[in-house]
Amino acid sequence: MRARVFVTLKPSVFDPQGTTVAEALHTLGYPSIRDVRQGKYFELEIDAASAEEARRLAAEAADRLLANPVIESYRIEVEAAARPEMVR
């Protein structure tokens, strides 16, 4: 089972990297892209019997390691898609 974990800075936290990317985009002629927030994306391959179990494990991983709760929040998507060897 695959879980996708999106880690982003909390809205209250200043994101110097995102701001710099936004400025670069403005320089490239995209003034309509007003703001950029940079985050992290993880794909977890999980041996789990159910999507619920996969989600629980991914959340535990995010709580303990993938995200720092002081500055970051996260969102999880679980995909029950077959792994390549399981495709018939």
Partner: peptide
Amino acid sequence: LLEAGLLPGAMLRNASL
């Protein structure tokens, strides 16, 4: 120490990058 929770707060990238 911050990540371990032995001190409060967190570090961000330098504002200047």
